[in-house]
Write a protein that binds this DNA or RNA. Structure first.
Lengths: 146, 146
DNA sequence: ATGCAAGTTCAAGTGAGGTTGAGGTCAAGC
DNA sequence: GCTTGACCTCAACCTCACTTGAACTTGCAT
């Protein structure tokens, strides 16, 4: 009775029940079953789902999230060591994403002063004049690994 | 001759030509046409596309990006004032996204010490014990406006 | 014991963000 | 002037992340 039904988990996690079934089908979460085949979730799943949603909303794919979550134990409640492992492995990825955002914000900010996003060169944005707009070569704010 | 063909823009921006056509169909970018109906892009478009890609990769939708870009002039090269306007209007959104990421990262970090993502309460994560896991109420890291 | 909201599976549908292919045109080099 | 690669449109298709609907079952409340 400490366990949650799919409806309860859905409401408290702020996602639709169908999404939870989908996450389960994708191996992101697991459920216990009652005698009558209904899903029951230990409370730890609430954290897990919150984690999934947070990660999603900052641009990480379910696949990436799935890979990270594989570091948490399937059956038992995660231990300190489990979370430490997850945190360690994700830190660079999260830092990278934060840096991208800051770069985007700061580029925008610094360009207010010089209009460099529309001009040919900008000392702030393009210190070495390597990407002068007339020459060949890239103007990417960053490489595009898509 | 200062203008780029779709292939050139695609290469320098690191996106497929089909993506550029798609962006145009969605009103994110514009093109001039040659007598023979081929697209030609002023250099400023390179910046615009770089901007679109950067924003996308940190979890912003094309619709959000589209709304932001409406602040930039369609025809002429954006002025300082144009970028300032865009930057001003986007700053809160970008800051919000940065904060989400930091919250995710820091939650992970701080939970290494106490295992709070699996335990019943955690002073760091849940200062007021408002969301004690047994009670009713949400455990969301943040509200879910999806 | 019965009603009914909440649960089940499985297949199909949706919307975002593109890619692919067919069938045809354009333009730069030989 | 002809070839060849880059370009055009349009329709169909694709992946990701779900949602919806049909047909059926569970389980709490009276």
């Amino acid at each position: 009775m400490t366990d949650l039904t799919i409806g309860q988990l859905a409401e408290r996690a702020g996602v639709a029940p169908s999404a939870l079934r989908f996450y389960e089908s994708e191996g992101l979460i697991e459920s216990l079953r009652t005698a009558g085949n209904q899903r029951r979730y230990p409370r730890a799943t609430l954290r897990r789902v919150a984690f999934i949603r947070s990660a999603q909303r900052v641009g990480l794919s379910l696949e990436e999230i799935h890979d990270a979550l594989r570091r948490l134990p399937a059956g038992r409640t995660p231990s300190k060591a489990d979370w430490a492992s997850l945190s360690r492995s994700w830190r660079p990825r999260l830092d990278e994403q934060i840096e991208r955002l800051q770069r985007l914000r700061d580029t925008l900010d610094s360009c207010i002063g010089c209009g460099c996003l529309s001009l040919r060169s900008c000392a702030l944005h393009n210190p070495g004049d390597v990407l002068a707009e007339r020459g060949p070569g890239a103007v990417n704010l960053e490489p595009q690994p898509r």
